[in-house]
Amino acid sequence: MSASPLDPAVFAELQAATGADFAAELAATFLEEAPGMIAQLKQAAAAGDGDAFRRAAHSLKSNANTFGATALAALARQMELSGLGGPAPDLAALDRVYTRADAALRGLLDG
């Protein structure tokens, strides 16, 4: 999966619809909240709590879509749909993808 970390068109659309200042604040909120969501997801995976895992993946997917974080959304979606029933989720990949999305989003905010 070589999806780009961030689709600038989606973020531009968000800015147009809600205002540049608001979009920036919202992105900052996401950057604050996302590490917590990822931590919750990992915790749920470790505890074998399928519901909490699915919910955390779902939230992450939903927010990633809002900002056009395409690769993060795709991975979170895959985790949401497969849950904890099958093979162990690739948590390291999630960290990698998130780090890239985080950097790309910060780049947009600073740019």
Binding site: T18, E25, L26, T29, F30, E33, R55, S59, S62, N63
Partner: peptide, 11 residues
């Protein structure tokens, strides 16, 4: 339950 979603919808 998600803060980003709440803020965005409210906006």
């Amino acid at each position: 339950d998600n803060k980003v979603n709440r803020l965005l919808l409210a906006r």
